[in-house]
Design a binder for these strands. Structure first.
Ligand code: MN
Ligand code: MN
Ligand code: ZN
Ligand code: ZN
Lengths: 136, 136
DNA sequence: TACTAAAACAGTAATTATTACTGATTAAAA
DNA sequence: TTTTAATCAGTAATAATTACTGTTTTAGTA
């Protein structure tokens, strides 16, 4: 895995962990995953590298409707399902930026990207008949 | 302005302030706006009421790509431009939920809404020729 | 390889955003 | 009215994130 930026053992570890993960982990989740095998790792290092990696476009920072920021190793522009019941974040692989841009008519702003969270009840929560009247 | 929930002077003030505002203020901005005319108002009361008002669907809580939550007195489903240079949030009035729903094919999840932030350089920042290579 | 400078580290402190607690006040219900 | 429940202000606590500091690691160069 190429960093294209200054190397450190920790930076490589953190990037590898995010790339491997499919569940859009938080900084703290990444830290907890790596800590057992790397006891000297500090949470500050995780935060610092997540910020650096995202400004270098190696990863994407996701703001979700509630809770801490999440991180995504898939840097292709794509969008997310967000379950309002269990807060799970899943990729919406079938929606493309070109589809979204189609719904505009001549915005005055210069558009540089989209963040789309599709609020939903995920399959699993739906099976469990979650009462959803309290949410939103 | 009807509350349809327990009344308090502070609750009414806060709701009125959000409804009046066009700029999607943060809790702290609302507090600062109201404090001079209401010296006894506490920030905790602002947070508590913002949470209550949004669970009662009187207002909407907005998560933005960075910074604290913002609040919106317009509860019609609508979407936002978010300037990556100055963090300004503007309504995207021309995009409808039905337009967004069109771009799906049979999601497994039960969709309950969308949060779309259109990342952009706003008109004003664009005029000022903001260098944008450092962003995103 | 050895030297130097820059970057990154761990550990900790500080800051920001938000929520929880407590005893006093206000609103709603009886 | 009297009673009960909700809300308040003020404060403390928690969660998320960033900043600081002295040490270690990496990178550039002789
Ligand atoms: Mn993703
Ligand atoms: Mn709005
Ligand atoms: Zn779920
Ligand atoms: Zn701007």
């Amino acid at each position: 895995m190429q960093l294209d930026m200054n190397y450190s053992k920790q930076r490589e570890l953190i990037l590898y962990e995010i790339k491997k993960s499919k569940c859009h982990p938080t900084a703290f989740e990444i830290y907890n995953e790596l800590k057992p095998g790397n006891p000297a790792l500090s949470l500050g290092t995780v935060y610092r590298n997540l910020k650096l990696l995202s400004t270098e476009n190696k990863i994407i920072k996701l703001a979700t409707p509630s809770g801490p920021d999440r991180f995504d190793g898939n840097t292709d522009e794509h969008y997310h399902y967000y379950c309002i019941s269990c807060s799970k974040v899943c990729d919406a692989d079938d929606i493309k930026a070109s589809d979204i841009s189609k719904i505009f008519n001549n915005p005055k702003q210069k558009i540089v990207g989209y963040e789309l969270n599709i609020l939903c009840i995920c399959e699993e929560c739906n099976k469990n008949n979650i009462d959803v009247s309290n949410y939103k």
